[in-house]
Design a protein around this nucleic acid. Structure first.
Lengths: 147, 147
DNA sequence: AACAATAATGAGAATGATTATCATTCGCAA
DNA sequence: TTGCGAATGATAATCATTCTCATTATTGTT
């Protein structure tokens, strides 16, 4: 019942579709999922859910702080569980594998850059696009099919 | 005729639509424009151009290195003239005003973060979302109408 | 300067991701 | 358990962007 408590404290009713989506993120080691990914994974797992509901639930979870939304390549949103530890991302342009990192110096210099110019920083997004030099490609379950 | 030289050296034929789009970016102080912005500004200026052409030309200019594409809020692309000086962006969440900055420390730590994890950095995008504390909002011609 | 080969344009259709609509169903408090 | 308001899901609609294809413009060559 821990999940339904999560939903309750987030101000959301505990419904089947929401529990299914939350389970997927909490159980999986595959952290960065698009709406389409979530939809297909649930269907593949025998669960029944509507695509519109997936989009709605993801947005609600984002607003409730349970998930974080990213725009890695600009086209579609991907979501990951918010585990309270802020981090930035390195995305391999060849295979799409995502690695997380945190650099305290970058964080503080960002805040200072904003403050120096009269801005109060709310949030920031930093994505490094790189080549994993084939070290990680073979193990990436979301490997892109290159054209 | 300097513009048609720009296009030539970029490997692009010098056509009217391309010259119009390039002029808009080179003349304006309003640096960050979406395809829709470009289209509407040209029409408003009495120029005749098709929206499909605007999209095509912007993509060609990006590939030729004349423009840089950004995804500030994830929904639509915005473009700015590539003036050779890399920089990152601070975007005001209230009025949408954009300010550029460069921090050598952030740049080098990004490269190091990637290298330390076995990635060769190709590119990166860093956007700081902030509140300009009303200092700049009144002067922003692209001021957003807040809901 | 006119020509032909070729690429570029523009109007509108098509696509892909996401959101809105609305009748039906579900969760929860009384 | 019962009922009300919120949630769901199938589908239509929307938004940004890309594709199609007939027409037009550009450029190197006569």
């Amino acid at each position: 019942m821990s999940q339904s408590l999560d939903l309750k404290s987030a101000g959301l009713k505990s419904t089947l579709p929401r529990l299914k989506v939350l389970s997927l993120f909490e159980s999986g080691n595959e952290c960065h999922l698009s709406a389409e990914d979530v939809y297909k994974k649930l269907l593949a797992g025998g669960e029944d859910i509507g695509l519109a509901t997936v989009y709605r639930v993801l947005t609600q979870f984002e607003q409730a702080g349970l998930l974080i939304r990213h725009h890695f390549q600009g086209d579609k949103s991907v979501f990951e569980l918010n585990q309270g530890k802020h981090h930035d991302h390195i995305v391999c342009l060849q295979c799409g594998v995502v690695e997380e990192f945190y650099d305290a110096t970058i964080e503080s210099r960002q805040k200072k850059a904003a403050a120096d110019r009269g801005f109060a920083m709310h949030d920031h997004s930093l994505y490094i696009y790189a080549d994993c030099t084939k070290l990680k490609c073979p193990n990436n379950p979301f490997k892109k099919s290159l054209p």
